[in-house]
């Protein structure tokens, strides 16, 4: 899976550079997040700006990341959801689980509040 991973102060920003987040590549994302958790990076923002399509496996990978972050007293927040992707979070009620921001600037800023 193509991702860009950057450290912004104490927060890790993961930008997904794939049009689809589905059963073909979601386990890669899960693995990349697990590596970051093992390095002690427990606060994350996943930027979904480039993702046009997400299925239940993609949602599952994000839930896995959220649970891992929470278990380590961290947080995983989302930003940049395209309308169709946002509708998937609403359909599955996951928009009530994640903190979702319009863009990375606002998502990163929320960790300072």
């Amino acid at each position: 899976m193509l991702t860009t991973i950057e450290s912004r102060d104490a927060v890790t920003l993961i930008q997904i550079q794939e049009e689809r987040l589905d059963a073909h590549n979601s386990s890669d994302l899960k693995g990349q997040m697990l590596t970051l958790f093992e390095e002690g990076k427990n606060d994350m923002v996943v930027d979904l700006q480039g993702v046009r399509f997400v299925d239940s496996s993609g949602l599952g990978a994000l839930v896995s990341g959220f649970k891992n972050a929470s278990a380590r007293n961290g947080n995983l927040k989302l930003c940049g959801l395209q309308p169709q992707v946002e509708s998937m979070f609403e359909l599955t009620r996951l928009h009530r689980v994640f903190e979702i921001f319009p863009d990375e600037i606002q998502a990163l800023k929320s960790f300072q509040e």
Binding site: D55, S56, G60, V63, F66, T92, R93, R96, V97
Partner: peptide, 10 residues
């Protein structure tokens, strides 16, 4: 709303 299961949504 608080369902944190990783699978089962398909």
């Amino acid at each position: 709303p608080s369902c944190l299961a990783e699978g089962g949504r398909g």
